[in-house]
């Protein structure tokens, strides 16, 4: 990998699902510190790309590198330990535990859960969890079981769970879907501040073009398994192919 700035690189990745091209010989790099948006119509391969990066989907061809080290098709838990965390389109939480317990478990997972009889609820984990809770503004529900939270807060908790791993690369699958239009920018502002504070590189799949325009440093446009445009939001949104394939369909 020649590019020094590249945190994540994929080379010639190909994935077919029963003849449908989810990734067609894709080669690209994600640079350190960038906040990159992935847009595209439904079924264009956005989530599959995240699934390849996290090891959930094994590509039929090609390779994935994190800082030059190959991580292709490692199990998700190994990739998570190497520093790639993800959030989910449908929040994936430990529903019978509180927000704070969820976060403390994530912190413990980062430090390794095999650590004898020391309780999970210990001062340093609690302090770190509370810091995260304050960072994303979940203070009022810190002791609520995550299974009983409304959708928007579950989404935020889901992202915070990934943040607690202190990842080098954070993959966000539609962080604002299912969130009301009013809350959308609040959540994004909070998230952006948290990411900047922690100098985390992030990649996010998004359907809301206004969110993309406001927050992304770079936009990757997907269409039937290929990246058809790649650049600054304003440049990409002016591209006719993008207008036809993505924006026209919105």
């Amino acid at each position: 990998m020649s590019d020094e700035r590249a945190l994540l690189s994929v080379r010639g990745i190909t994935v077919n699902f029963a003849g449908v091209k989810a990734a067609d010989d894709v080669t690209l790099s994600i640079n350190r510190g960038d906040f990159t948006a992935i847009i595209g119509a439904n079924g264009s391969g956005k989530t599959t790309f995240l699934n390849i990066c996290t090891g959930y989907v094994k590509p039929q061809a090609g390779a994935v590198y994190l800082e030059g080290r190959e991580i292709t098709a490692l199990p998700p838990r190994n990739i998570a330990r190497q520093g790639i965390a993800r959030s989910f389109q449908i929040p994936q939480l430990f529903t019978d535990q509180t927000v704070r317990e969820n976060l403390m478990l994530s912190i413990a997972a980062r430090e390794g859960v095999f650590q004898g009889f020391t309780p999970l609820d210990r001062p340093e984990y609690r302090a770190e969890a509370d810091e995260l809770i304050a960072l994303v503004g979940l203070q009022s529900v810190a002791d609520t079981l995550t299974g009983t939270l409304p959708e928007g807060l579950r989404k935020l908790a889901d992202v915070t769970l990934a943040l607690a791993l202190k990842p080098r690369l954070l993959l966000l699958d539609e962080p604002t879907s299912g969130v009301s239009a009013l809350e959308r920018f609040d959540i994004m502002n909070t998230l952006m501040n948290a990411l900047r504070e922690r100098e985390t590189t992030a990649l996010f799949v998004e359907h809301d073009m206004e969110v993309v325009r406001r927050y992304a440093d770079r936009v990757l446009v997907w269409d039937t398994g290929s990246v058809i445009a790649d650049g600054l939001p304003d440049t990409v949104f002016a591209d006719e192919r993008v207008i036809k394939s993505v924006l026209g369909a919105v």
């Binding site: 996290t54 998570a80 430990f94 535990q97 859960v113």
Partner: peptide, 20 residues
């Protein structure tokens, strides 16, 4: 302990546990 909480987490969301 963290291991005990992880045990309960297998029940509520094994997928997430692996992604942690």
């Amino acid at each position: 302990s963290p291991l005990g909480h992880a045990l309960a987490a297998v029940h509520s969301n094994e997928v997430r546990l692996e992604y942690l």
